[in-house]
């Protein structure tokens, strides 16, 4: 039982990170029909900012907002430079563009920083652990769970009560009519990217806190997982992205913890098998998007 609860805390921490990443993908997808595979490179950028801050002995409490800000700015720049010119292109055009952006950034990281994994200095506190209800939980895990909750509450408030957030939901449902109301397409799309950058930045801090290193390809795996989570939850649905992220986190952690040792090498295929099973039962995902039209402007 104790092991189970322990692993549940781990699953919440990992699932929360996946949820934040999947949300970032979903926010952009719901508005412009683009799966941004360069989302992971936003994480990498935030990771490198943490690394350089560590080298320059910038305190962690300052390094974190700096890293997140870098990710937001990079996301907005990405939209302005790479995606705005192909906005009226097909979904495939935008998808290929996102792969191109991802690869260009990876090559830049490799050549300008280092092709090898770089250590990131983290405060010692993060690798401590504390006793909560008789369980020993890492501070970094607790921080991940807490940050996820804060971000989800913030995002919910923003999308429900802020004029820009409501406009983003309106645009996700019917972009043409939203524009008729005077909602500017550029503002909504740039806003969606900024939000996705914020989520990627927070996810990057959580991700790097677990592994204390950053490398040029760091963003690829988590974003692939987030993509799976977004589909599992229902592509384009924000609540679905959160549900999918947590479910994927739970599947991965429980399989790693409870699968017999001789089966461990089949962990990933079994995990993805479960995902396929869920999709067989709910082809549109756990919480499908009510109006998946993703019109282009």
């Amino acid at each position: 039982m104790e092991l189970f609860l322990q692993q549940t805390a781990n699953a919440l921490a990992l699932g929360g990170t996946y949820a934040l990443l999947a949300l970032g993908l979903a926010v952009v997808f719901s508005i412009m029909g683009l799966i941004n595979f360069a989302h992971g490179e936003l994480m990498t950028i935030a990771g490198y900012v943490l690394m350089y801050c560590g080298i320059a002995s910038v305190p962690f409490v300052i390094a974190v907002p700096l890293a997140i800000t870098a990710s937001v700015l990079a996301a907005v720049a990405m939209e302005r430079i790479a995606f705005r010119p192909v906005r009226n292109g097909s979904g495939a055009t935008m998808l290929v563009t996102s792969f191109a952006v991802a690869m260009i950034l990876q090559v830049l990281f490799q050549n300008l920083i280092s092709a090898r994994s770089q250590p990131v200095l983290l405060p010692a506190l993060l690798s401590d652990s504390v006793r909560v209800f008789g369980l020993v939980i890492g501070v970094n895990k607790l921080a991940a769970i807490a940050s996820t909750i804060v971000m989800l509450v913030f995002l919910d408030w923003f999308m429900k009560h802020q004029k820009t957030g409501v406009a983003m939901r309106a645009a996700a449902e019917d972009f043409a009519v939203a524009r008729l109301m005077g909602i500017r397409a550029n503002t909504v799309i740039a806003g969606a990217f900024a939000l996705s950058g914020l989520l990627a930045g927070v996810a990057a801090v959580l991700w790097v806190s677990q592994r204390a290193s950053v490398d040029p390809l760091m963003g690829f795996m988590p974003v692939l997982k987030a993509f799976i989570a977004a589909i599992l939850g229902g592509l384009g649905s924000l609540r679905g992205a959160v549900a999918g992220g947590f479910l994927l986190g739970f599947i991965e952690i429980y399989l790693a913890a409870f699968l017999p040792p001789e089966m461990q090498e089949f962990r990933d295929p079994i995990g993805l098998g479960i995902v396929v099973l869920v999709l067989l039962i709910r082809p549109n995902g756990l919480i499908p998007s009510a109006t998946l039209k993703a019109e282009k402007v």
Binding site: K163, A167, R169, E173, M181, G182, I183, T291
Partner: peptide
């Protein structure tokens, strides 16, 4: 073409955007 997933008042609020 009302925004079906938004509340009535949010629809109106968007009208005054």
């Amino acid at each position: 073409r009302v925004f079906g997933t938004l509340s009535v008042s949010d629809n109106l609020r968007m009208g005054a955007f």
